Computed example of a mutant assay.
Amino acid sequence: MRTWMTGALVASTLVSGLMAGLFAGFAYSVMPGLKKSGDHSFVEVMQNINVAIVNPLFMTLFMGGLAVGAIAVLGLWRGADNRLRIWLFAGLGFYLVMLGITSGINVPLNDQLAAAGDPNQIDLGAARSAFEDKWVVWNIARAVVNVASFASFAWSLVLLGRVRNSAPQVSPVPAAPGRPGW
């Protein structure tokens, strides 16, 4: 039973790291590159990215991170010491904040940009100015929060390993009377 709980924590760590990397990648490469583009290219590319990213892999990771994080926290909570509980809870809490930023700010901005219409038929400057700066700031915020989630889950793994390594080792098969253990 502890194996699947540890597996959920490993999965939480990996998923939060992947999501942090995605958002950070946008922050330090995609958006600075698009900033140098004209309004038409910026709007068209962001509209296309916002459609392409809603795919089964992204959605599985994005929402699956919440699921495996909750499984890890709930599964390991009972047997954990207070330090481990704090870091588990922090990892899940930071992940929830990232979900809130994404669903409450970034996605509505994506929807607003999509609703602006075809880049060949709209005021591109107005569509871009209503989107770009706010989206970039909140993307950086969710990247930072997601890095904190990743770090918290990673530290939880370290603490869990320390707890397991300090626990007394029990022979898998009890020794018969008069015989040495395995």
Rank of each mutant, 00 (worst) to 15 (best):
N82C: 01
A11N: 08
G25S: 08
L57W: 11
L66Y: 08
G33H: 10
V10L: 15
M46E: 15
F58D: 07
E44Q: 14
D81I: 01
G17C: 09
G75S: 12
G21L: 11
V10G: 03
G38E: 10
W4E: 15
V68E: 01
Q47F: 05
V30G: 05
T6P: 02
M19T: 14
G69L: 07
Q47K: 05
H40N: 00
K36Y: 04
G69C: 10
M46I: 08
R85E: 08
S16F: 03
F42S: 07
V73M: 12
G7V: 11
A52K: 05
K36F: 01
V68Q: 01
I49M: 11
V30W: 08
A72I: 01
L74G: 14
G7Q: 11
S29Y: 15
S16K: 02
A8R: 07
M63G: 12
F42L: 13
V30R: 08
R85M: 08
A11I: 00
A20I: 04
K35A: 15
S12I: 01
M46T: 09
L18H: 00
M46H: 11
W77N: 13
G75N: 00
P32N: 12
W4M: 11
I53V: 15
H40S: 02
G33E: 06
M59V: 15
F62R: 05
W77D: 08
